[in-house]
Design a binder for these strands. Sequence first.
DNA 1: GTCTATAAGCAGATAGAC
DNA 2: GTCTATCTGCTTATAGAC
Lengths: 203, 203
Amino acid sequence: MLLEPRKRPHQQRSAATVDAILEAAAHILERKGLDALTTNAVAELAGVSIGSLYQYFPGKAAILAELIRRERLILLAGIERMAHASGDSLKDDVCLLIRIAVAHQLLRPGLGRALEYVETTLPLGPETAKLSNEIVQYVAALLERHGVSEATEAARDLVALAKGMIDAAGIAGESDQRLLVGRVCRAALGYLEYSMPNGNELT
Amino acid sequence: MLLEPRKRPHQQRSAATVDAILEAAAHILERKGLDALTTNAVAELAGVSIGSLYQYFPGKAAILAELIRRERLILLAGIERMAHASGDSLKDDVCLLIRIAVAHQLLRPGLGRALEYVETTLPLGPETAKLSNEIVQYVAALLERHGVSEATEAARDLVALAKGMIDAAGIAGESDQRLLVGRVCRAALGYLEYSMPNGNELT
DNA sequence: GTCTATAAGCAGATAGAC
DNA sequence: GTCTATCTGCTTATAGAC
């Protein structure tokens, strides 16, 4: 199975074509799900011929892999932009992260869920796996900075529970981000506080 | 799209055939994912001809729908069996629920995840939707009995966060149920406690 | 009731013209 | 670089024999 794009789009026109293909794939995934994601459908919606599509991607799997890569990069970029705003309150930092994650995932909830499932069945390249891990690592580093013990495990758990709650909200069609962020923060902070020795309050 | 089984298996032999088909489908979903789930593959693994398969199910979607229905019923049965053991400590009750959910989902983690995704793209019958809701309702009733406010919302959140954490554990290949249960309980109880007025400890 | 054989259609992928 | 045309193989689904 080929997962890499055939050519990295260094030229302007090519980049536009690749973008159109990926956007079309995302659009289909979002509204009709994995079943409907065929190379023909993608090419047609993208306004390019099937032949051109295969110029850039060796197959359907490669399109999905690149989509995953890009989504991860977007989220990671958001998180890293946050790094500068990182304060000295664990509570604020965690909630800021959650706000970013919620905003990201709720933009296109169906897309996120489909990609998450695909990710578990696709043998992803090491680069993409590293990308996903980087998010957890980032959270772990933040937790550690605030003196949370077992930071890596806690980071994995926080990411997982947030993902679960945000996905559920997406499925239910919740639109109020503020309420959702509040509830996810409650779960995350509750998790963190619950493990702490009594009297050791969050700052 | 036809979602209902063609005939409800009232006879013994028929029931065995239906079971074989569903078990084969589950097996394929678990190890190879949605893509590999074709009617031919299912029929072959089940040891019945493709013709027979279509005697019982009008299509692939119907097999998936029935699989979802059965999985839900199993989990619900586990939960209801628990009802009798329900004590007067919210903490114990919640953790018992989590123990049941973890045991259920970790039996066949890949199956659960695949079905969860399918569930969001398949136009399920009202009966199955009701089944999923019943689980949340059950948790909500339990929370309410213990005086938790906004019980329905809390139940939805707890189910969602548990699902997220358990799924992640399944993907990561975690095998120690006890550790996982502990962490999910921590998140759930943390969520519940975090909302309570200070000094109002869990019992 | 179950099987074999097969029809019909579609998906993935490529070759070759422009 | 992009398109059209096309091929191969697979999937769904049915018809009809036993």
